[in-house]
């Protein structure tokens, strides 16, 4: 049941001066899980509702399985949606909730019962068929909502922040369940979230959307290693930025000439390196610095370093590195971890 989803030049305006979405174009491969990541109000839920058919776009096209669905009503798109709130039908039992989509299609009773049972087992809710939603916890409700969406074997699975209403410990379990169920059923899935950690853990690819524009669409690790620009780097927690002049394969910075594994094009550039990639050692790209700040974070220690010329850097090091404020250290920025941002 794997289907390709294509979104072309999608634009939507609610009538304000700035459109909620402008020119969003991306395609989701069959069986792929794509996270639409962005801060609240960036237009990602609007995009999801347009894919589901609950909203009509101002311009652009949505194609499911190669065919435009703009004229297809939501109930015929076979795009099941799971919302932030579980939104189970309060007057129905768990069983009737999960069977709802099948019942609307006129599935025979015997087959319906069997498929509902299987769907409930898939989300580990086998023993709850006869309960009413009010008798379930928030996490259980959300799992039933997932089963309800999956039971009809939809062509698309659309998830609108399904974890954000859950407690932190439940969220992890639900996250695992979504991934497991999605892999198993090979559902083409679009997952909307504002939580970059969630997106990184779940998604095959991440579409970063801010102010209604697609900023970057790539595999999760690319957002850490090769962010397109400073805004994206900052969104993913990058803290180190160095200005310099690229010339003949090296970059002249206040810390000296730095080598990059992937050379930057000549001219003015901004370099970035993740705090985890900074090393305390000599060699290529090394210089001396003084420890200005040390914050113990349990699994690592975050050091604030000051190099010559007042350049500040953050370094995240294993917790056994016992440096104290005022220590002088030798710092190395490995060439393979330095990345020149686009201008």
């Amino acid at each position: 049941m794997s289907t390709r989803l294509e979104i072309q030049d999608l634009t939507h305006s609610y009538g304000g001066d700035r459109p909620a979405l402008s020119g969003l174009t991306l395609s989701v491969e069959p069986g792929e899980l794509v996270a639409l990541l962005g801060p609240s109000g960036c237009g990602k839920t609007t995009a999801l509702k347009i894919i589901a058919g609950l909203l009509s776009p101002t311009a652009g096209d949505v194609r499911i399985g190669g065919r435009s669905v703009l004229n297809v009503p939501p109930e015929q798109r076979e795009a099941a949606m799971v919302f932030q709130k579980s939104l189970l039908f309060p007057h129905m039992t768990v069983e009737s909730n999960v069977g709802f989509g099948l019942r609307m299609r006129g599935t025979p009773r015997g087959e319906m019962r069997e498929r509902v049972e299987r769907a409930l087992r898939r989300v580990h809710m086998g023993g709850f068929a006869t309960r009413k939603p009010a008798a379930l916890s928030g996490g259980q409700q959300q799992r039933v909502a997932l089963a309800r969406a999956l039971v009809t074997e939809p062509r698309l699975l659309l998830l609108d922040e399904p974890l954000s209403a859950l407690d932190a410990n439940l969220r992890e379990g639900m996250r695992g369940l979504i991934k497991e169920v999605q892999r198993e059923g090979k559902h083409t899935t679009v997952f909307v979230t504002h939580d970059q950690e969630e997106a990184v853990i779940l998604a095959d690819r991440i579409a970063l959307v801010t102010d209604g524009h697609l900023r970057m669409y790539d595999r999760p690790e690319a957002f850490y290693d090769r962010p397109l620009n400073r805004e994206i780097a900052e969104f993913f927690g990058a803290a180190n930025f160095l200005h310099g002049q690229a010339r003949n394969g090296t970059v002249e910075t206040p810390l000296g000439a730095l080598k990059l594994a992937i050379p930057a094009t000549s001219g003015e550039v901004t370099l970035t390196i993740r705090p985890e990639a900074v090393r305390l050692e000599g060699g290529e790209n090394s210089f001396s610095a003084r420890v200005r700040e040390a914050t113990y974070l349990g699994t690592q220690v975050l050091y604030g370093l000051e190099a010559s010329g007042g350049v500040a850097l953050k370094a995240a090091l294993p917790p056994h590195t016992r440096l104290t404020v005022g220590d002088d250290v030798l710092v190395r920025l490995p060439a393979e971890s330095l990345w020149a941002l686009g201008r």
């Binding site: 589901a52 058919g53 609950l54 009503p73 939501p74 109930e75 015929q76 798109r77 076979e78 795009a79 099941a80 949606m81 919302f83 709130k85 939104l87 039908f89 309060p90 709802f100 989509g101 609307m104 299609r105 309800r148 969406a149 009809t152 659309l158």
Partner: peptide, 16 residues
């Protein structure tokens, strides 16, 4: 209130 949201869910599940 909630009826409007539930209706959207029902719609994506194929209810006319």
């Amino acid at each position: 209130g909630v009826a409007a949201e539930l209706e959207e869910v029902a719609q994506t599940l194929g209810a006319n």
